[in-house]
Design a protein around this nucleic acid. Structure first.
Ligand SMILES: [Mn+2]
Ligand SMILES: [Mn+2]
Ligand SMILES: [Zn+2]
Ligand SMILES: [Zn+2]
Lengths: 139, 139
DNA sequence: ATCGGTATTGCACCTGGTCGCAATTATACT
DNA sequence: AGTATAATTGCGACCAGGTGCAATACCGAT
């Protein structure tokens, strides 16, 4: 429930719309599409406009309560306080999703920082490719 | 000009619209937004519809003539036969772009394949983060 | 409990991109 | 050159997501 606390601390108003959006992110499990959030919210308060929802999600991202990742065209939102940070491998053929530990990226991050002085911002990445089954299926 | 050859080989029709799109990808430099391509094409043939352009781009991507990367919301298209493959580091603060050798990713690819049996599809990635200057600027 | 100022909302409209469909056209065959 | 036909095009409607603005509501001060 730290989302609510964060909003308060930042001096932002606690509207019923915002409470519902925060609820959605807590209630439903991880990796929500914007559409799922909109459905959840409008089920209990139908007049809430999608623009309100997108704006709130943007806010929550800005204050570190939520990650936003692009999966293909769509966006996926992801509540932040989880057991541990992770990324996702999504099979472009069958859609299967594998959780991938973020440790795999620490080397890469380090070498990009060394070579280019660049600090990459790897937060909850979604990578596409082929899972084991699909890889073998196609000969 | 291998794009044209590829289209022919695949038994696809060589329409004037398609020629113009291929021209755009060759004429203007690398990393084109869809908008730039549309402008280029419609400057010489105004009636070409955006849907035609998106469909052709999709085709060219499918047959390996062009890479498509997502930069934030927008898509960027990238002609394939370059000196060498690369990725990009884009500074989220000043917009600077650094070309990054794809070798940095081979370890990661290998370990993801070993651990998860998953073949990631890393083609011309665009990663955001902070460049050296901007990193230091913010204290 | 009321009040005022500011943050937030809903709305209407916009943009990039996708899709189904009927009209058009590139190509292969005669 | 003329024709058949499957591929391609332009169009319009549509989708996710974002924005400016006037109306509203939260919240702290009285
Ligand atoms: Mn996740
Ligand atoms: Mn490039
Ligand atoms: Zn799969
Ligand atoms: Zn920078």
């Amino acid at each position: 429930m730290s989302c609510i606390k964060t909003l308060k601390e930042k001096g932002l108003k606690l509207t019923p719309q915002r409470r519902l959006i925060v609820d959605a992110i807590h209630d439903i499990d991880t990796n929500l599409t914007a559409e799922e959030i909109i459905t959840h919210v409008q089920a209990r308060m139908p007049e809430v406009h999608k623009s309100t929802i997108y704006r709130t999600l943007e806010l929550l991202e800005k204050y570190g309560c939520v990650f936003k990742s692009e999966v293909g065209e769509r966006s996926v939102y992801h509540h932040v306080d989880e057991r541990h940070h992770h990324h996702h491998l999504v099979c472009s053929s069958c859609g299967k999703t594998i959780e991938c530990d973020e440790d795999f990226f620490t080397n890469l991050e380090k070498s990009l920082a060394e070579k280019y002085g660049f600090n990459v911002d790897f937060k909850h990445i979604v990578m596409s490719g082929l899972c084991e089954k699909c890889k073998n299926k196609n000969k």
